[in-house]
Amino acid sequence: MRAPADQRFPIRLQLNGRTRQGHAEPRMQLCDFLRYELGATGVHVGCEHGVCGACTVLVDGVASRSCLMLAVQAHERRIDTVESLARDDVMNDLQQAFSRHHALQCGFCTSGILMSCVEFLERVPEPDEAQVRDMLSGHLCRCTGYTGMVQAVLEVARQRGAQQQAPQQQEALENTHV
């Protein structure tokens, strides 16, 4: 596959469970493609060199910096952004916990952090505080601090663990996690 520098390449991907199409020059970063071509403005662009973590999305289920990926690299991949979390305008358990624990103020960093948390909790369903802090070290928050986020993530892990043990509630859990 070749995409010349001066041409816009057609890109098709699964965004939050739906097939979406757009066009991008080879040099277009994935974050800009998601925002400006597909309207996923929950993707926030901060430092553009992989340090701040604001632009983190899931690429085939894996938390990745969308400023360090090209849109053409996401062709025929599955991308999930913060827009995937709420269902029918109801925030999912993670978002509700962030709200409850005052884990955000301005919210600029939050959408990336939430996506990291999504993959992290799948890989590490019963984390300790040190593991949560290690995961959050891949993100910069400059107004709230991290204590509320740590508490929110640990609480969601406990809640999901408890629901796992109550099989009749399994369906409700799955519905909050798309």
């Binding site: 596959m1 070749r2 995409a3 520098a5 390449f9 080879p26 040099r27 970063q29 553009e48 060199h49």
Partner: peptide, 11 residues
């Protein structure tokens, strides 16, 4: 903070 133009080849 945007890359200069380049050809992209996926091998």
């Amino acid at each position: 903070m945007k890359p200069a133009a380049f050809d992209y080849v996926r091998v």
